[in-house]
């Protein structure tokens, strides 16, 4: 399908925080409580609309375990956005954010937009990390923040779309060099065409699990 831009995203965070579930909820609109753990990297894609432009999100869902961290680092390269995920019911996943963030900052381009996500917000009774703590961490490190639930789909669309909006704004401001694909942005075939033919509504169309 024709698109104006393609944004590459990566999803990072400790093992078991719900990275793959967030992706599945976003691309397929479903929740699968028990599914195979991610080995290496898996891909998802979906088309969204921002400012009347079709934007394809190409999402790289990474494995969270330490042993393959040095391989995961190579995925940061060429990503325009990152979703950094922790589990609000597990304090340790919040404590590890600094390491993840350092890693991401060190191996990605400096303009990469990072969205901090506190997932599993449906499990309020088991909460170990207060929402305010997530907000404070995001403020301190210049990240966007949201609490989501991949199970109930709460805020999932918003998390992916708000990140895209932020990237899009940066493009408008001329922060991103869109001709350099290492920034994780590709100009699509539709870009040259007029944008007046497109509706302003968001989301909807899905591009399945393909990666390109």
């Amino acid at each position: 399908m024709a698109y104006a831009y393609l944004f590459k995203y990566i999803i990072i965070g400790d093992t078991g925080v719900g990275k793959s579930c967030l992706l599945l909820q976003f691309t397929d609109k479903r929740f699968q409580p028990v599914h195979d753990l991610t080995i290496g990297v898996e891909f998802g894609a979906r088309m969204i609309t921002i400012d009347g432009k079709q934007i394809k999100l190409q999402i790289w869902d990474t494995a969270g375990q330490e042993s393959f961290r040095s391989i995961t680092r190579s995925y940061y390269r060429g990503a325009a956005g990152a979703l950094l995920v922790y589990d609000i019911t597990r304090r340790d996943t919040f404590n590890h954010l600094t390491t993840w963030l350092e890693d991401a900052r060190q191996h990605s381009n400096s303009n990469m937009v990072i969205m901090l996500i506190g997932n599993k917000s449906d499990l309020e009774s088991r909460r170990e990390v207060k929402k305010e703590e997530g907000e404070a961490f995001a403020r301190e490190h210049g990240l966007i923040f949201m609490e989501t639930s991949a199970k109930t789909a709460s805020n999932v669309e918003e998390a992916f779309i708000n990140t895209a909006k932020e990237i899009y704004e940066k493009i408008q401001e001329g922060v991103f060099d869109i001709n350099n694909e290492a920034n994780g942005i590709k100009i699509g075939p539709q870009h040259a065409a007029t944008n007046s033919t497109l509706s302003g509504s968001q989301g909807g169309q899905q591009a399945g699990g393909g990666c390109c």
Partner: peptide, 20 residues
């Protein structure tokens, strides 16, 4: 040319012997 030169998409194939 399509930026897949790292071949990391082979990770799971090679690790699990195409199990999935």
């Amino acid at each position: 040319t399509d930026n897949m030169e790292s071949f990391t998409f082979c990770h799971r194939w090679l690790l699990l012997g195409f199990q999935r």
